[in-house]
Design a protein around this nucleic acid. Structure first.
Lengths: 242, 242
DNA sequence: TAGTGGTCTAGACCACCCT
DNA sequence: GGGTGGTCTAGACCACTAC
């Protein structure tokens, strides 16, 4: 195991430890080696190890107890099924289903009022809208509509890229990196347009996620509306306290 | 401004910078002093300052750009209204409403099946259940039911403590600190029992939050069910990317 | 008491942005 | 080029837990 200088050491070590947890080299509920031991083994400073462990703790993978040790959180075997990060395909797989994605439409059109508001653009702005359906074991569970202003889009979106998550689309077509996202969560009765895609009976509520994505310059670069059938796929948050 | 040695410096500096942002010493969208300048001013090392700034960035308050500077995120003036942290009274205030809390009941009873499942206890376990109503401008918006196993409770809960958030209750009556919480989010039709408290028409969906709280030993110490009227109070997440 | 994680320092070098 | 944040090191001391 050799560490390269090109990539941050932290980003190289994190997947190593994640793999060890996944492969039960460090078994569920079991203790990890001490910071010093890990630092020695991986030939890095203790501060670097600490930085990695802090990230894993923030994500809930490990629990740290002063004077005691660092332990694998056995309750979070499916921790990546939590909200945040946002790759629906991955999310579905991690919940034990086979995932598939079905493009519904790609079109250029004027923004809606809601979209213009969140994106902070004029109401006659042209956008590219991508509507997609995610299925778990071929059962439709999520419908998403993503909207990107044409002004930042570098060319038309290739139909072959319909499966790409929003952050990769932005990277590929706008060279934009998402810095953070704001999500509002609502409960809604399944509207007719949505019901059609989700193929469910009309009378039970689903979750509506209203997302806005910002770049490094703090400008909104994309907007998303997702209808989420939580009966198949739980929307789960892990919140470190304090 | 003198820093004490007793409390971690990071925890002393963080509120200082937060205050400066709130009081617009560092105006919205404006730039903070460089890490070195802050380190000099506050008489700490750059690493310490960086640790504070990393926390503020993770919470969305500031944006950091390599080679450029650190900026106040003007979009997050109401950032504390995001989910996580979990003090509903505070949340309501930050949304610009006057907040109030109305205890509905405190009782000792057997756990329900759902509660027993989440808490990992036997079905005949005795628990203390606290049901409360939170109002914004006197309009009921949240109903919460918190459940704590009597086995870890140190004495009966005083009626005067009904206004305490769950983490403070656990601290006071069990001497337990919450390490993390897992929350599942559902959309539900307002059930009759809930409707009664929320005083709404029956036919629109609300959010149901199912929370389990864990201590340092990774044992569930409390369970909560909250019904959340998102029409008055948005449920908002801020997600740092990457 | 030994070993753990928690905090903090001082300094180095790098990547990046702006002018 | 000069300043910024990003990464990393080596070492120190402290607070806490388990034994």
């Amino acid at each position: 195991m050799t560490l390269q200088r090109s990539k941050p050491i932290v980003d190289q070590i994190k997947p190593i430890l994640k793999d060890r947890i996944r492969n039960k080299v460090y078994p569920p509920g079991g203790r990890l080696p001490s910071e010093s031991d890990l630092a020695d083994e991986l030939r890095v400073s203790r501060a670097t190890i600490r930085s990695v462990l802090a990230q894993l703790a923030a994500e809930g993978f490990i629990l740290r107890r002063q004077g005691d040790g660092t332990y694998v959180n056995e309750r979070i075997h499916d921790i990546e099924s939590r909200y945040g990060g946002w790759n629906f395909l991955h999310l579905i797989e991690l919940n034990g289903y086979s995932s598939s994605i079905k493009p519904i439409s790609i079109e250029q059109r004027k923004v809606s009022d809601v979209e213009a508001d969140w994106l902070g653009v004029a109401t006659d702005t042209s956008v590219t809208s991508i509507e997609r359906l995610f299925a778990a074991d071929d059962i439709p569970v999520i419908v998403t509509i993503n909207v990107i202003p044409d002004s930042i889009l570098d060319g038309a979106v290739d139909l072959a890229d319909e499966y790409l998550p929003i952050d990769e689309l932005l990277k590929k077509y706008c060279d934009e990196d998402i810095t953070y996202a704001i999500t509002d969560i609502d409960a809604v009765s399944a509207e007719k347009s949505v019901i059609k895609e989700l193929k469910r009976t009309i009378d039970y509520p689903i979750l509506k996620l209203t997302e806005t994505f910002y770049n490094k310059a703090n400008q909104p670069v994309a907007f998303g509306l997702s209808y989420y059938d939580h009966r198949m796929l739980r929307l789960r948050l892990v919140q470190p306290w304090g």
